[in-house]
């Protein structure tokens, strides 16, 4: 089985927001929608011992996604590979899923013609090109084209994407070889975005 997950190495992130911009570009997002902000608590500590960390956020593609269970329209799906996505044609725009996501990863644009819930899809339109037979792939396809656009754009290589069920994948090695944290695990959502903390991201 494939289980897509993302590792975010906060030791490498410099808060340049390239991923935020890349995502908006690839997904052609309306003005008021951001899928993956990079947030920071600002500079911490006292001179000269100061540091700043950045936390890139995105949909956690939870193993137990509260947004899928609550959707009355069956407009939200979780595929076998773990990717959670929304079919805008089936969504009635009740915003129940937006309210239910503990990570604020879902949003509805205020534009009248865009009244459906939307979210990060791990760029499944890109990722799944890897599963296609070579002759059906887009012309000039390269393996990096099968990565989410934010991962492909990150020049710091702070975002690492792959199959967690594959023991040879980079995400698998990083998750198993480092101390990682996840957001709001106490809510039982089993999020699949793993953070290697800047301070404390030591090798196990």
């Amino acid at each position: 089985m494939t289980r897509y997950a993302m590792v975010i190495d906060k030791r490498r992130c410099i808060g340049c927001q390239s991923c935020t911009v890349a995502c908006r570009t690839w997904n052609n997002l309306p003005m008021d929608i951001i899928y993956n902000p990079v947030v920071s608590e600002g500079v911490q500590g006292k001179w000269p011992n100061v540091h700043q960390t950045f936390t890139p956020l995105l949909c956690n593609h939870c193993q137990n996604p509260p947004c899928v269970i609550c959707c009355p329209c069956k407009a939200t799906f979780q595929d076998d590979d773990g990717i959670v996505w929304v079919d805008p044609n089936k969504c009635m725009g009740c915003k129940f899923c937006v309210q239910n996501c503990p990570y604020g990863a879902r949003d509805v644009s205020a534009a009248p013609e865009e009244g459906f819930a939307r979210k990060c899809t791990f760029c499944k339109d890109r990722v799944r090109t890897a599963e296609l037979p070579p002759d059906q792939r887009p012309e000039g396809w390269k393996p990096e084209d099968a990565l989410p656009y934010c991962v492909n754009t990150c020049h710091q290589k702070a975002r690492i994407f792959g199959d967690l069920d594959d023991p040879d994948s980079e995400v698998s090695k990083l998750v198993n070889g480092n101390t990682t944290t996840r957001l709001f695990t106490e809510l039982g959502t089993d999020p699949q975005v793993y953070y290697i903390e800047e301070n404390g991201g030591s090798v196990k």
């Binding site: 269970i69 329209c73 069956k74 969504c91 009635m92 725009g93 009740c94 915003k95 009244g115």
Partner: peptide, 24 residues
């Protein structure tokens, strides 16, 4: 009236897992 895509409102009865379906 509050729905973003009110024409799909009948779909509220599609998924049995949602509490909203029971409310409707």
């Amino acid at each position: 009236f509050e729905l973003g895509q009110w024409k799909n409102f009948i779909r509220v009865w599609i998924a049995s897992t949602s509490i909203m379906k029971w409310g409707a």
